[in-house]
Amino acid sequence: MTSTLSRPTAERASPAKGTDRRRLPVSRKTMRWVQTAILVVVALIWIYPLLWIFAASVKDATGIFAGGLSLLPEQWHWDNYSRAWSEAGFSRYMINTVIVTVATVAIVVVRCAAAGYVIARYRFRGRRLLIGVLAATMFIPTGLFIVPVVELSDVLGLLNTHLGLILALAGGGHVAAVLLYAGFFAQIPKELEEAAVVDGAGFARTFFRIMLPLSGPITATVVVLTFLATWNNFFLPLVFTFSVPDNRTLAVGMLAFEGTNSTDWSGLAAAASLSLLPILALFVLLQRHFVEGIAGAVKS
């Protein structure tokens, strides 16, 4: 893993090389552009359905159904966005979603990094058992745990609260995250730790000041994957907000567009477009680290 970290990434390595360019000046470059052109066409087809969602968000119901596949609306209905934002309560849902997602991601990162760290670097009683149980449950479909989780939250008095929802989201699963961190920390040379100890750093300080910052790529990965799962999670937020509609998240709030006899398709599309943006921004922002993080993990 350390080698991955210290090795220049693909992008950074490229400008240094120029030997082959001299030997095969045209053909390779042309090849690359041809390849890019093909990929661009494929990518456009690939994201067409998503463009369609965006197009639908500025059409009215008739436009969606009569317009079929055309992306351009006859009339731009930006009011779908204002409807989604204010009337359907999406401003509030957005705040809720941000609170829940950020808190969940924070808890997952800290607890998984901490657990991964001690699992990787210390021997303690029950370590093997812990790894074994974690690995075994990684493959159990957790989607069916909703009933016991609600039961538990009620016992704890956390039903209908943000905290209860956050704990439920951050508590179950995330085995992969623990194992990612463990894999990463296992490869950090002992000298680093020893140097810290010589400098007088304690256990916690070593972890928070040295180890956690080093694990940037893993953290990026865990952040993106957890963010993705939490942001779009539907069932848990649904059950946790029955009695408190004001606590709803975006994914649950979308239900409001499905009436008894009708669906507000354009409002739904606007809402979907809105909820897509933050997660997209996060991916673009963390893309490089994200890839590296998984690389490190996969390698270990």
Binding site: D154, L159, N160, L238, V239, F242, S243, P245, L255, A256, E258, T260
Partner: peptide, 18 residues
């Protein structure tokens, strides 16, 4: 409070329990 039909019964039971 208006509920989506899908959620009405769930909301009620939660309320009943608490």
């Amino acid at each position: 409070t208006v509920y989506n039909p899908n959620e009405m019964g769930q909301a009620l039971q939660l309320a009943l329990g608490s």
